[in-house]
Design a protein around this nucleic acid. Structure first.
Lengths: 213, 213
DNA sequence: CGAGAACCTAGACATTCGTACAGGTCGTAG
DNA sequence: CTACGACCTGTACGAATGTCTAGGTTCTCG
């Protein structure tokens, strides 16, 4: 054993090509050691439990279990691990999701190896790293929008989802096992919360702003 | 000079991490040589003109100039080059776009190095390679495709656009300077063409399928 | 020229929507 | 405990919606 403290890293990404890139990029640095890889969130949990890394590089867009969910689950069991979100796009919502899940860093995949390594060392030391794009997106998200539709209740979302599918009030009532009067009440509330003139606009807004899933 | 004919490759991707992955993955094969990299479509055109590669690995989702557009432009000037589309997701439309642009292969980024190399050699020999997912998506697209909403007339699209904004029939009538009876007629036609139960679903479908600009 | 497509208009009808008002239960945070 | 928010039910009423039928114009293409 040469150095007493190499930073142990796990790379999580569903794309083999990306994992290769990380693998070889990190190889050039003596103080870093890639000790595991995973292709989705579930696998990440298994691998991390086993190899106990210091830092986890986590892709956000993955099948099965998404990056945010995986990060949250991982940190619940291993609060000492540092997660850096690595992603392709700089949507404001994604950034917030990741940080809220407990990621200490957020980088775009177009970072160079050196910058990535800096972020890894920083994370290991407990310092956060945000890519400029992510920081900008975060700032923008913090300023402008009460983010349309964030104040919808769970029930209202259910109603909205059915509404988007073209269901009428009575159909919605049937599916949810409630009175059609109640449905109308919910729809009315939804319209005012979304500032929509009618259900057509509400449906359009729901899709446009990804209010469902 | 060892072998007379190494396959000359250019990698195009906006993510540095991915390019590293490709760079190191290809390094292990004697008959392959990575002779250039580019981070977007425009750069790809420049680089390829300069280094004259045999095969181009082209990401489809890039800023400035998308992969499909770049592929088309590239092949117009260099019809002898073989382009393999490399992408993150298997949307049917993307696959069609890529192939229509002239790509000879379509792979997901989760392919392993060996599979990638097989595809490169195949492309160089003029043989196509489709990932199973891509092939499936293509087949599905070929079967289903009346491509929802393609048969809408110009007027119907105008009506639909206003409908999405939450306008009522009379409002739409006013904007378009036609009778509200006519609007209702158009809406009725739209609903049947989109197979929607009501204007709410029609609005949702319009947004979901990008039926408007 | 004739056929067809796209577009427009209109009346009648049942249905659905959206709102306003007036209450009720339930669980939880103060 | 009390207040509050989310959720539920109901009545009543005017307005909007969707379908039907039955025409009309304008333009293009064979």
């Amino acid at each position: 054993m040469s150095e007493p403290k190499r930073i142990r890293i796990v790379a999580v990404d569903d794309h083999e090509v990306v994992r290769s890139g990380l693998r070889f990029s990190l190889m050039a640095f003596d103080d870093l050691e890639l000790v595991g890889e995973a292709a989705d969130g579930e696998e990440a949990l298994r691998v991390c439990s086993e190899v106990q890394p210091d830092v986890v590089l986590m892709d956000m867009m993955m099948p099965r279990m998404g990056g945010a969910e995986a990060t949250e689950a991982l940190l619940r069991n291993h609060p000492e691990m540092k997660v850096i979100a690595l992603t392709s796009f700089e949507e404001g919502t994604r950034v917030q999701e990741a940080l809220q899940a407990g990621a200490i860093g957020y980088l775009l995949k177009d970072v160079g190896a050196d910058e990535l390594v800096r972020a890894i060392r920083a994370a290991h030391a407990g310092r956060a790293t945000l890519s400029p794009e992510a920081a900008r997106a975060l700032a923008k998200a913090a300023i402008e929008p009460p983010e349309l539709g964030q104040d919808l209740t769970k029930r209202e979302r259910e109603v909205l989802a059915l509404l988007v599918e073209g269901k009428g009030n009575s159909e919605i009532a049937e599916v949810l096992n409630i009175s059609h009067h109640t449905v109308r009440f919910h729809v009315s509330t939804i319209l005012s919360k979304l500032n929509a003139a009618n259900r057509a606009e509400a449906a359009a807004l729901a899709v446009k702003h990804h209010l469902l899933d």
